[in-house]
Simulated scan of single mutants.
Amino acid sequence: MRLRIIVILLIFFTIKSFSQDSKFSIDANYPIAIGDNFLGQNYNGLVDLGAKYKFSDNKIVDIGASINFGIFQNTKSGATAMNQLFDVKIFPIQPRIFAEFNIQNLKKLHPQIGLGYSIIIYDAVWRENTNADLPSDINNNENGFNFNIGLFYDLTHKLFLQAQYDFIKIGVEDGIPDKSYNTNINILKFGIGYRI
Results as ranks from 00 to 15, higher is better:
Asp137Phe: 12
Ser17Thr: 09
Asp178Pro: 06
Ile120Leu: 13
Ala99His: 11
Leu151Asp: 04
Thr80Leu: 14
Tyr153Val: 10
Asp87Leu: 09
Gly193Pro: 02
Val7Tyr: 11
Asn141Tyr: 09
Phe190Glu: 02
Asn139Glu: 11
Leu161Glu: 05
Ser22Asp: 04
Lys59Asn: 11
Leu151Ser: 04
Phe72Asp: 00
Pro92Lys: 07
Asp27His: 10
Tyr153Gln: 09
Lys76Glu: 08
Met1Val: 12
Leu3Thr: 08
Ser180His: 08
Ala81Cys: 02
Ile176Asn: 01
Gln104Trp: 07
Ala132Ser: 14
Ser17Cys: 07
Asp48Phe: 02
Ile32Leu: 14
Thr183Gln: 11
Pro95Val: 05
Ala33Glu: 04
Ala51Pro: 00
Ile168Val: 13
Ile8Leu: 13
Phe13Lys: 04
Leu49Met: 09
Phe152Lys: 05
Ile119Cys: 02
Ile170His: 04
Ser66Glu: 10
Phe12Gly: 00
Glu128Ala: 08
Tyr117Asn: 01
Tyr153Arg: 05
Asp48Ser: 15
Arg127Trp: 12
Thr183Ala: 05
Gly171Asp: 15
Gln94His: 05
Ala79Arg: 10
Ile121Asn: 07
Ile63Asn: 00
Ala51Gly: 06
Leu10His: 11
Gly40Pro: 03
Phe145Lys: 03
Asp21Thr: 09
Ser22Ile: 07
Lys52Pro: 00
Val61Phe: 11
Ile26Cys: 01
Asp166Thr: 03
Thr156Arg: 02
Asn37Val: 15
Leu106Arg: 07
Phe69Ile: 12
Tyr194Cys: 04
Tyr181Cys: 03
Asp154Asn: 13
Ile93Arg: 03
Gly116Asp: 05
Ile11Trp: 15
Gly116Ile: 14
Phe12Gln: 03
Thr80Asp: 15
Phe160Pro: 04
Ala28Ile: 15
Gly70Trp: 10
Gly150Lys: 02
Arg2Glu: 11
Ser136Val: 10
Met82Phe: 06
Gln164His: 12
Gly150Thr: 05
Asn37Phe: 12
Ile121Gln: 14
Gly78Asn: 06
Ile97Tyr: 03
Thr156Gln: 09
Ile138Cys: 05
Glu142Cys: 08
Ser66Leu: 10
Val7Asn: 05
Val47Arg: 08
Gln112Pro: 00
Phe55Glu: 12
Ile185Lys: 09
Pro177Cys: 11
Gln162Trp: 04
Asp133Trp: 15
Pro31Ile: 15
Lys76Ala: 10
Lys107Met: 02
Tyr153Ser: 03
Ser118Gln: 08
Phe69Met: 06
Leu155Trp: 12
Gly114Ala: 13
Tyr165Asn: 02
Ala65Val: 11
Pro177Arg: 10
Gly114Met: 14
Thr130Ile: 14
Ile121Ala: 13
Ile26Phe: 10
Pro177Trp: 10
Ile97Gly: 07
Glu100Asn: 07
Gly45Val: 00
Phe86Gln: 13
Asp62Tyr: 08
Val172Trp: 06
Asn139Gln: 11
Gly191Ile: 09
Leu9Thr: 05
Asp137Lys: 14
Val125Gly: 00
Asn105Ala: 12
Phe167Trp: 13
Leu134Trp: 15
Glu100His: 02
Asn186Pro: 01
Asp36Phe: 05
Ile120Thr: 03
Lys23Trp: 08
Tyr165Gly: 05
Met82Lys: 09
Ser77Glu: 13
Asp21Pro: 00
Ile63Ser: 08
Lys108Gly: 01
Asn68Tyr: 15
Ile196Gly: 03
Leu161Asp: 03
Gly144Lys: 10
Asn140Phe: 15
Thr75Phe: 01
Ala51Thr: 06
Tyr30Trp: 13
